[in-house]
Nucleic acid binder design. Structure first.
Lengths: 122, 122
DNA sequence: CTAAGAGCTGACGCTGACGTCAGAGGCAAG
DNA sequence: CTTGCCTCTGACGTCAGCGTCAGCTCTTAG
């Protein structure tokens, strides 16, 4: 059982963020008699998962709905629908980003070539 | 020469957003004597490009720096650095998203299998 | 015992890309 | 000429994921 500072250190997430996660019902905690939060070891993985989902563009609301089934693997048809929707959104995002990256790559490659040939305004 | 409403319609971007782009020096416009904005046809592509870069996670500040060279292909060593940095950021983002997508895929596949075999709590 | 360093609960601040509203002026059609 | 839609410039509102500060309590090393 670790306290909030230790969990923050282990995950690289701020103490404020962890309290925010609890506020959003993303991360539970046991409380000592004096009210301090205590976390089990698996909280580390859970926090990292939450971070991953945030980074994938999901909102707190979406995460709170999907987290249980992502953790347990159990899922209702409704949740499966939401899950697939998010998956497709992420998939489209990947394709858009790939397009953009390739576009930048083209520019970078051309610019590098320009420097080699010494012809900046061909 | 189209006015702002037409450009908004053609790009799917709000009028407010287009004015915001001008405020951020992302999109210029000629003004009629009465002060109304007029855009050439190529403004459509420029707006779509801006949207693409926003979607890739770039800020207005980054876009305003990189837009000229993305359009013209001309670039200084400094800009090439910034460009490569953004490219790498996008690349890392793609990998993270791919990870997340695959994770969701695994869950979806397992859930579907569960439904087929009728064993929700294996 | 005591001082310092966690932790706690509000509660306000911040940032960026716009939404929205107010009040006023522009423009083609009938 | 006027009606109705478009456009203009401020300027304030929004939303999410925290940052930050205040004032207080808890815990623990010495």
């Amino acid at each position: 059982m670790m306290r909030i500072g230790e969990l923050a250190a282990k995950t690289g997430v701020s103490v404020r963020a962890l309290r925010y996660y609890e506020e959003q019902h993303l991360l539970g905690s046991e409380r000592s008699t004096s009210g301090q939060r205590h976390y089990a070891d698996n909280a580390v993985d859970r926090v990292l998962l939450i971070q991953q989902l945030y980074a994938a563009g999901l909102s707190s609301r979406s995460i709170v709905e999907l987290l249980p089934c992502v953790v347990t693997g159990e899922v209702t048809p409704e949740l499966l629908e939401r899950l697939s929707a998010e998956r497709d959104r992420i998939d489209r995002q990947i394709h858009m980003l790939t397009d953009t990256r390739d576009r930048l790559d083209t520019i970078i490659t051309q610019a590098t070539t320009t420097f080699r040939t010494g012809r900046p305004c061909d």
